[in-house]
Amino acid sequence: MESMARPNTAVKIILVLMLLFIAVIALFPFFALLLASFKPSTELLRYGLNLKLQAHLLSFKNYIYLFQEGAKYLIWYKNSLVITIVGTILSLFFSSMVGYALAVYDFKGKNVVFILVLAVMMIPMEILMLPLYKLMVSFKMINTYWGVIVPIMVAPVAIFFFRQYALGLPKELLDAARIDGCSEFRIFFNIMVPLMKPAFGAMAILQAMGYWNSFLWPTVILRTEDMFTLPIGLSGLLTPYGNNYDILISGSLLTILPIIILFIFFQRYFISGLTVGGVKG
């Protein structure tokens, strides 16, 4: 920024050192996780985590355990993937429709709907988890993927984002398409959705991360080990009496790694997806 126009070299070095120091803190846990994943769990149990390389101890054994017969890790991975993919697609579908309508049309009750969207955004879902659980019991959705997805499928944050984005869509296009005889729905799906691609990219990331990392609500819904998602399955390996480190560490790493790789390729979408609301214009 111009306010720091020409700091002298000493100030610059101090600032860069400070930035480096914080970067080390930000990245250190990943380094520790990577290192620990190659060490035998007996070593971790007995001596805890240390940062010595200890080349003679390192092996891929912990990763092999993940794929062994009887290990549930792959099942958890599949469950997480199904919930993330199905949930994200449905969230995008419904939220984009609602957000688009709130931006493009004038209709009675529009402001009421918008205020309700904001209200739902401001109230943490955790407050309602007891009645929602009872509702899911009566819907017979306990221990199903749908039970995790359906209550959070129409996401107010995404509606809000799509609305903001759709406000900037060219209205002339809408009129032109109407004159050409397009139905309102064809206009949305064939003309407007392609124009909103960047918004879909950002929201796909936000929603997918939400589903992939979500913990409390899936814990309430998913009851048997065969239905667990990764965070639930992995957290079950943590106990106050000692942890099953063989699967825990390598399993955690393989849960985080795909997202970091995706981030490297789609940084822009990640950043706009995870900073919804703050970015205006």
Partner: peptide
Amino acid sequence: FRSAYFIPALTSTIVVGVIFRLI
């Protein structure tokens, strides 16, 4: 720096908590 600081936000608190317990 921007990317490095951002990477922690990508992780599940539960999953990354495992390594925090060890640290």
